[in-house]
Design a protein around this nucleic acid. Structure first.
Ligand SMILES: [Zn+2]
Length: 410
DNA sequence: ACTGCCGGGTA
DNA sequence: TACCCGGCAGT
């Protein structure tokens, strides 16, 4: 019966326009179904960062309570990492060793600190969607309400993003460039003080030598552990894995930054890293997908065309230039992108200063445990506002379906 | 009150 | 797969 909702287009339209056929093909369909739905989905934790996408980013938002993860030492109020102060050198050794093992290859080095929570939780529970995000990497941004399948299937997805894709030739770049940002994005709270001393510590089991110059440490690793003869770059790269860079302050605050590529990746870009908001998990970087995720920097654009099959105009999506990173936070908290991204990143135009980008340093403020945030809700005017309910037929498909608007991304 | 959109339902 | 809507969450 009439779902008298004013909102429905049918209602509105008929009333107002009176134009008959209009888009609504099936006259009756709508009404019926309906609401049989069950009460409400247990969305609590799940609200995911969703698209944010950003790749990661997300979009950059951790719906999950950060509680569980944490590094072993976390128990102190302090930030996990911080705990390794100079004094705790010994500890650090172990920790570092562990890190190295775990992430011998390009993996997230850091599952430690803030990342701790995100990292550890990544594997488990969370939302199905999240899986989606990280996994397919392709779908990401747009949550793909369902239709996502189009490209989600992967076939579509990969090709597109593959421009920078992992598999592609530029492995080299991929490694350095992609990886780093990602990695860093996760963990690294990095602080920079004026008078920090940077030391390089050899991570080779049993060694532990500390040198002040990067060259020195490299040489040390190469000659003492890897064997000098080698040549290839590979060796070279490996060197990176066997030493870590730490910045020592007077008190000896150490900062285990990602060792690999420390030199090459100056983090300068990563300025924002993640946003440790508990709420916005953003797409994490599951180790496995790592290689893939990295490249997926620009996906969301594509995503939209997926359904955008609207007759009439298509409207340019607008700038997609952004850097990427955002979601690294997984994530979502973003969120995002993920951001989450989460949503993902975004900027289309006037970006209202989003509260993104906070200090990364923080140790995580405990107080706010807001649960899964639902996304941030874009600010941009969406079809509904722009065209008005009266002209629902001009809305983008997503809007008509009450999904995330694809025409005006935020 | 409205808007944006997730999750889920119907066809 | 296409379409739609309940209902939640943020403004
Ligand atoms: Zn729209």
């Amino acid at each position: 019966m009439g779902k008298g909702d004013f909102k429905t287009r049918r209602g509105a339209r008929e009333g107002a326009d009176g134009s008959a056929a209009a888009a609504g093909v099936g006259a009756g369909p709508g009404g019926g179904g309906g609401r049989g739905c069950a009460s409400r989905p247990p969305r609590a934790a799940p609200s995911r960062p969703s698209r944010a996408c950003a790749v990661g980013a997300a979009p950059f938002l951790g719906g999950v309570p950060p509680a569980h993860a944490k590094c072993t030492c976390a128990r102190d109020a302090h930030a996990p990492h911080t705990c390794l102060t100079g004094a705790a050198a010994a500890d650090m050794d172990e920790m570092v060793a562990a890190m190295v093992l775990t992430s011998l290859s390009c993996s997230p080095v850091l599952q430690s600190p803030p990342a701790g929570d995100s990292a550890s939780r990544a594997p488990c529970d969370p939302w199905k969607e999240s899986g989606d995000v990280s996994d397919s990497g392709s779908s990401t941004t747009s949550g793909h309400w369902s239709g996502g399948s189009s490209d989600a299937s992967g076939a579509g997805g990969s090709p597109k993003h593959s421009s920078e894709a992992p598999g592609s030739p530029p492995r080299d770049d991929g490694f350095d460039t992609d990886c780093d940002p990602l990695l860093l994005a996760e963990p690294a709270p990095r602080k920079r003080k004026n008078s920090l001393r940077v030391l390089y510590k050899c991570l080779w089991p049993g060694c532990g030598k500390v040198l002040r110059s990067i060259v020195g440490i490299k040489r040390h690793v190469r000659t003492q552990h890897l064997g000098d003869g080698a040549d290839s770059e590979q060796r070279k790269r490996e060197e990176d894995f066997y030493y870590t860079e730490m910045q020592v302050k007077e008190e000896a605050a150490v900062e285990p930054t990602a060792s690999p590529t420390s030199p090459s990746a100056p983090a300068g870009l990563q300025g924002k890293l993640e946003v440790p908001l508990p709420e916005a998990p953003l797409p994490e970087v599951p180790g496995s997908a790592l290689s893939q995720s990295a490249p997926s920097s620009f996906w969301h654009i594509q995503a939209d065309h997926a359904y955008q099959a609207l007759p009439s105009i298509q409207i340019p999506v607008s700038p997609h230039i952004f850097t990427s990173i955002s979601w690294a936070t997984a994530t979502s908290t973003l969120p995002s992108l993920s951001p989450v991204r989460s949503r993902s990143l975004s900027f289309s135009e006037p970006q209202p200063a989003t509260p993104l980008l906070k200090s990364h340093l923080i140790v995580t403020s405990p107080p706010r445990v807001s649960l899964g945030a639902r996304k941030v809700r874009g600010e941009a005017k969406k079809c509904r506002k722009v065209y008005g309910i009266e002209h629902r037929d001009q809305w983008c498909t997503a809007c008509r379906w009450k999904k995330a608007c694809q025409r005006f991304l935020d």
